[in-house]
Design a protein around this nucleic acid. Sequence first.
DNA 1: AGGCAGGTGGCCA
DNA 2: TGGCCACCTGCC
Length: 290
Amino acid sequence: MKWTDWQILSIENPFTANSLRETLDGGQAFRWSLIEAENIWQGTWGPHLIQLQLDSNQSLQVRRPIENNFTTEQAIRDYLLLDTDWNAIIDQLPWRSDSHLQASIRAFPELRLLNQPFNETLLGFMCSATKQIPQIKIMCANLANELGDKIVPSGPNALPTWKQIAQSSEEFLRSLGLGFRAKNIKRTADLIVQEPNCLETIESLPYEEAKERLVAFPGVGSKIADCTLLFGARKYEAFPVDTWIIKVLKTRYGLEGWSNPQLERFGRIHLGSYAGYAQQFLFAYERTSR
DNA sequence: AGGCAGGTGGCCA
DNA sequence: TGGCCACCTGCC
């Protein structure tokens, strides 16, 4: 494959190798992989395929396949949210009165959220139920390879659209390693196809209403809905409660015995309108500190 | 070899 | 609401 020359992306607060890895491959997105020999990250979203690397000055550099000239710098900046003032958002988090949150932020000061396509985010997190990140990535890769559109003649495909999934069968989805998730993913695909543009509608709704619509899909509960809204619709008040966050809240915040809905409410009240961003720091710190 | 993993939905009280 | 359990599959 022919790539463009490397181009520097100007960023206010540059990534470190560590925070870049945690941002791309820490569980927000399942379509990034490190080409270890060259220390290059390669990933896709929608019809886009890019590679990222940090140069010797720690500047972030990007390149794309030569033929994909629709992958503009602006499209890349929008996906990586390079023009969001994250430090201003961090400043609004209650780290001054919350030493554990402060420690989590200090561990990954450049950790960022991505702005992923809504439909793909829903699919990825529907695959995530009781799976670890490497397994989820395999499921997504299988879905893309078997059902998704080509991005370049040789290279990873795009994730399939919900229409492409609806045209498949539960049995075939199971053959891709989706397990018991296959049934719900197929049924959700059928529902989405029945109501064209419903995902666009849901994405545009306020958080509470959007979540209500998402959890109506089979296989989508509170956690998957919150992940979809946080990572795929920039609803930063969403506070996904997963096993890691449950552990953090119980052990670090003394909330032993609280139910999941109670923990969710605690998170959103304590952490505020950017609770989801705070969650990402707590999650990353907990997951990497053992 | 059995238990568990970035959950959900079904049942029961 | 709260508790318990099945559900695919791969990995330790």
